[in-house]
Amino acid sequence: MTTLTITAKGQITLRKDILRALGVSPGDKVDVHVLPNGQVTLSRSRRSGSIDDFIGVLHDKATRPVSIDEMNEAIAAGWAGEQ
């Protein structure tokens, strides 16, 4: 079991091992479900495949010029949720 501390702003920070277990990284979203017994569940948010999910998929990824083939691979990976 992991114990987290709540900040004065009412926030918590998840440790890297928890983020890794969830399969999330900076910029990803998580779903929180509050259960009636006072517990919460946290899970990786699944993309809906909408155009809004696609917009910005390459943000901060391109550090060099890329080929059309590399762009197509990145697009395919983004739509498949492999990003």
Rank of each mutant, 00 (worst) to 15 (best):
N37V: 13
L58M: 09
S48G: 14
V57D: 02
D52N: 10
I51F: 11
S48K: 09
P65Q: 07
S50C: 06
R44D: 00
R46M: 04
K61Q: 11
T41S: 12
R47F: 01
R47A: 03
G56W: 15
R64M: 07
R44M: 03
S48P: 00
R46W: 05
D52P: 03
S45A: 14
R47S: 01
V66D: 00
A62P: 02
A62N: 09
R47N: 10
V40R: 06
G56S: 08
R64N: 06
D60L: 10
V40G: 04
V66I: 15
R47M: 13
A62R: 07
R46G: 14
Q39R: 04
S43M: 03
R44P: 01
V57P: 00
D60A: 15
D60S: 08
L42K: 06
G56K: 06
L58R: 05
Q39W: 04
V57Y: 15
F54D: 11
T41C: 11
S43D: 14
R46N: 03
R64Q: 12
G56A: 09
V66K: 01
L42N: 14
I51H: 05
L42C: 13
T63K: 08
N37Q: 12
G49H: 12
R44L: 04
V40M: 15
D53P: 01
P65Y: 12
S45L: 11
G38D: 09
H59V: 09
Q39G: 14
I55S: 09
H59Y: 15
R64V: 03
D53M: 07
